[in-house]
Write a protein that binds this DNA or RNA. Structure first.
Lengths: 234, 234
DNA sequence: ACAAAAGTGTTTTTTCTACACCCATGG
DNA sequence: CCATGGGTGTAGAAAAAACACTTTTGT
């Protein structure tokens, strides 16, 4: 914080600082968002992102992790800051700046009980209800970030189970980019990356023949990144 | 802002919210950063980004614009939010979250008097002094953003005068990417974009022959973006 | 035997890269 | 007339896009 000179002599105003989580999941070929029905005033009954005020002694990112763990029971979730929302009148109740966080979770391994006690629901992205305050804007911005980022960083894998099939991966990318991709080119591209480990198991839930399962090779990816490698999945 | 349920019953803490500006300029083939020598405690005499506390009645982005205008005398400067810095102990004096802003200015048309009265200096990026608090991190993050963003959005033009030559533009991109680019390929690439308007004037300050001046075609760019166009300058 | 999804190669087109010489001008 | 930076084209390599059929297997 670097106050401009004159600010040293004017009143410094204190505000609430909050954090809101935009939580993406992927299920049955659809991108989904975890939103919450508020059970208290203000905005009782309205849909909203989950969030919390940031406490005096915690980092903003810690506050976000705390919320995510309370809600999903998960630790080690992929999360990064989206941006701060700081319109003076964004919350009619009181001045509050919110720092939105962008999270990706494996939809199958979160704690359903926990979420249900919090009034959580998964919505498909194009079937989202109206959200309170500027939360709709946050979701829109997060979606744009996801689209851009999925291309250059292997964050898509955060949305899939640890073991996944190529067709699953493709349908995820199709959901993110909102367009159909060519099977052969997609598979070829991925294989040439050398970042998938083929397992000796098949997933037979979607076809009689079954599709081979793969794991993402995080170790190799880390190495490649260090040596100046640029991931890209169009 | 979406408080988690339990937060409604716990104390809500108020904090200072500040904004700090990472101001880039480009001059004589070098990327530069505007930093300030502090003339008051705390950190008297240390180098720092310029910033301000956000006031109760102003948007965070307004606060940043206010600072920028106070310092440079310029309005309509390219500025966008970088991200929020929210470590609990980032400022030893008191809890303060800072929202860093990323600004690009045309180095020739800012008000030199104004900046000098504020203790401002332009530093080349690889000759930066130590900065207070987490400002060094902010600069590093901003530089990464500039590198990434210059490739996909025509923000480079914000750093050049309205009329510029191709060699000038190339040297800007070379400074941003920190590598030499091929003259012919660079020029070819730009020409095929169809976003430069060639003027009937030459800049003769750098060669006897003189280089034609160009303007960026913002109108056409807007149109192309709307029709789904993707800008790219490698 | 057949439905339904998984898996496989080749050709064409486009984009990227590397590379060397002439031009215009002011001094 | 010459030093200096401005400006131009082409060929080879690499990457992206288009495209259709065979395989497996549970029912």
């Amino acid at each position: 914080m670097t106050p401009a000179l004159k600010d040293l002599y004017v009143q410094k105003d204190k505000m609430y600082v909050a954090t809101d989580c935009i939580i993406f999941g992927f299920d049955a070929g659809k991108l989904k968002l975890l939103v919450f029905k508020r059970r208290v005033e203000p905005f009782l009954g309205a849909w909203s992102l989950i969030g919390s005020f940031v406490r005096m002694e915690e980092d903003v990112s810690e506050a976000a992790k705390r919320v995510l763990t309370e809600i999903t029971g998960l630790d080690n979730v992929f999360m990064e800051q989206l941006k701060a929302y700081g319109l003076a009148n964004r919350d009619p109740g009181y001045r509050c700046v919110s720092i939105a966080q962008f999270a990706l979770i494996r939809i199958d391994d979160y704690d359903k009980e926990l979420t249900e006690t919090h009034g959580a629901h998964w919505f498909e992205l194009n079937e989202l209800p109206e959200l309170v305050l500027d939360h709709g804007q946050m979701v829109e911005d997060a979606m744009a970030r996801l689209k851009r980022k999925a291309r250059y960083q292997p964050i898509g894998f955060e949305l899939l189970p640890e073991k996944f099939t190529i067709p699953q991966l493709q349908s995820l990318y199709e959901a993110i980019y909102q367009k159909k991709l060519d099977d052969r080119n997609f598979r070829k591209k991925l294989m040439t990356l050398g970042l998938l480990i083929k397992l000796n198991e098949k997933d037979k839930t979607t076809s009689r023949r079954g599709a081979f399962l793969y794991k993402f090779d995080y170790d190799n990816y880390q190495k490649l990144v260090k040596s100046g490698y640029n991931f890209e999945i169009a």
